[in-house]
């Protein structure tokens, strides 16, 4: 049975996962350089072994209040279009292997920012994991929607 590995993490008590193949590394970091005038979802820039990496605040991307960047945050560094972007998350979870069977499209009741970033849901034993579209999650040029938009396109991008 075909299956996939997901790196999981929590944001605002919700479990998310991204395809493990996209994850470069995970680290804790606290010295971010703010980028004035940039979209609020850009938490800041930091130096990862000589590379300048932009950290994207997933809370803002999900339509929640931004994170306090003066306390260390967990960075999930994903590779999007040959560029490394850090997703700021609350807590790192395990890497889990999931059968494609367990996959379901996002529930109709899921709305707004969440719906835009999610490609589907996985039913775990005790909770749900939302599979994140890393590219959308890292894209700060799109204003965070209040209402969900084109749902067909979302299903396809999985």
């Amino acid at each position: 049975m075909p299956s996939r590995q997901y790196a999981t993490f929590e944001v605002a008590d919700q479990l998310f996962g991204v395809d493990v193949a996209q994850v470069q590394e995970v680290l804790r970091f606290h010295e971010y350089t703010r980028v004035p005038l940039a979209p609020t979802s850009v938490g800041g820039l930091f130096n990862l072994r000589g590379q300048v990496i932009a950290a994207v605040d997933l809370r803002v991307q999900l339509g929640l209040p931004g994170r306090d960047l003066d306390v260390p945050a967990m960075n999930v560094i994903v590779s999007v279009d040959d560029e490394w972007v850090s997703l700021l998350v609350d807590r790192i979870g395990e890497v889990i292997e999931l059968d494609d069977e367990a996959f379901e499209p996002p529930p109709d009741t899921l709305a707004g920012a969440y719906r835009n970033l999610i490609v589907g849901t996985f039913k775990l034993q005790d909770r749900l994991m939302l599979a994140l579209d890393a590219r959308r999650a890292a894209d700060t040029t799109v204003p965070v929607p209040v209402q969900h938009t084109d749902e067909g396109r979302l299903a396809h991008s999985a």
């Binding site: 010295e31 350089t33 980028v35 004035p36 005038l37 940039a38 979209p39 850009v42 800041g44 820039l45 930091f46 130096n47 000589g50 300048v52 932009a54 560029e83 894209d139 700060t140 040029t141």
Partner: peptide, 24 residues
């Protein structure tokens, strides 16, 4: 800088300064 920062228009790029922090 990546496209998302370039759009701001005030920055020509970023660099890493003496203490290892990023500066615009």
């Amino acid at each position: 800088l990546t496209g998302r920062m370039k759009d701001v228009g005030v920055y020509a790029g970023a660099t890493i300064v003496g203490d290892g922090k990023v500066a615009l």
